[in-house]
């Protein structure tokens, strides 16, 4: 058992840092939860060690006794044990009551409404995330996918919805998870404390490619965030050179345009992710591949091998078309 405790500590020390860890947190809420986890771990460890020690003492008291038949318990020792059992039961009740109160206050703290600096809608699809930056002024609203940029130190409010099946939004370094349920809207609030990139992924089983439904939350400085936001509001980059122009034409005329939207082109589908600023995102296909021209070409050539069962069909392209299309998409910064 000591082995367990040691290996636990060793693993926790070296292993829990990471961009998707509930113990390496970078938001007010996540940190509060991490403290709560450590508190519970501490209390539970003490209880477990106590019970195990008592058990071992009970076993050590006597080695294998000869079988001298059943015995009738002595009344005095029964009374003494009854007192101890009663005390232990009261202690148990005390511990669970305190833990209940602690978690009750934690919930209240986490859900206390601060004025949100940013209001986003996240809609889960099989198997990607659509992110809408809401604003009272319609010209300030924009849509992106699978990557959320937020300013550091501000309260972020998410409205969670689902387009098809149930998903769950979970970025453990920032805060706990919340489900996205068709026909309902849930909310989640977090306040990032540190600039950085944090990974999250869908936590509710949502079908074939549940494993490939991740997202990034990029926490920027206020200035960087504003710069990024203005970039996202702008229409897509105009193609440079004949290859990219061919690529744009292909995108508009092939099947691509019926599912995807690119602002500034005639492609205005809404079934798939908005690709207006595709190349500004770190990953394509909800965290499946790092964004670069090669990975985009690979995805276009055969999306079903990289993420089997996803809703993007294989569109027939010859080598030249593939080249042009990937050049165009890789330039959509």
């Amino acid at each position: 058992m000591a082995r367990h405790a040691l290996s636990l500590i060793a693993l926790l020390c070296c292993g829990c840092a990471g961009w998707q860890s509930a113990l390496d947190t970078h938001a007010v809420q996540g940190t509060r939860l991490a403290h709560l986890i450590w508190l519970f771990v501490g209390v539970c460890a003490v209880v477990w060690v106590t019970v195990t020690v008592v058990l071992l003492l009970a076993l050590r008291k006597k080695n294998d006794c000869p079988d001298d038949g059943p015995h009738t318990p002595a009344e005095a020792s029964e009374r003494r044990m009854a007192r101890i059992v009663r005390a232990a039961a009261i202690a148990t009740a005390g511990i669970i009551t305190s833990l209940t109160i602690v978690s009750f206050y934690a919930t209240r703290e986490l859900t206390s409404a601060a004025v949100a600096a940013l209001d986003l809608r996240v809609r889960g699809y099989q198997w990607w995330w659509e992110v809408t930056y809401l604003d009272a002024r319609p010209d300030q609203v924009f849509i992106t996918a699978n990557e959320i940029h937020v300013p550091v130190g501000r309260s972020i409010h998410l409205r969670l919805a689902a387009a098809d099946v149930i998903h769950s939004f979970w970025v453990p370094s920032l805060t706990g998870k919340q489900d996205l349920i068709p026909g309902r809207e849930n909310t989640l609030t977090f306040t990032p404390q540190e600039v950085g990139i944090y990974r999250g992924q869908c936590a509710e089983f949502c079908g074939l490619q549940h494993a490939h439904m991740s997202l990034l939350v990029v926490v920027d400085s206020a200035a960087d965030f504003e710069h990024w936001r203005r970039g996202q509001l702008a229409p897509a980059a105009t193609p440079r050179g004949p290859e990219q122009e061919t690529g744009k034409r292909l995108f508009e005329n092939k099947a691509c345009a019926s599912c995807h939207n690119i602002q500034g082109s005639t492609a205005s589908g809404t079934i798939g992710p908005d690709l207006t600023h595709l190349a500004s995102r770190h990953y394509i296909a909800a965290g499946s591949l790092a964004t670069n021209r090669g990975s985009i070409a690979a995805w276009l050539a055969d999306p079903q091998t990289i993420k089997p069962g996803n809703n993007m069909p294989r569109v027939r392209l010859n080598a030249g078309e593939l080249n042009a299309l990937s050049a165009y998409l890789a330039a959509l910064r």
Binding site: A22, R32, L33, L36, I37, F40, V41, C44, L99, T100, V102, S103, A106, T107, L110, S168, W170, P172, T175, G176, K177, Q178, A203, E204, F205
Partner: peptide, 13 residues
């Protein structure tokens, strides 16, 4: 631990 609502939001699923 998982009975605690806030804690469960991190470890659930």
């Amino acid at each position: 631990m998982v009975a605690s609502v806030p804690l469960d939001t991190q470890v659930h699923d």
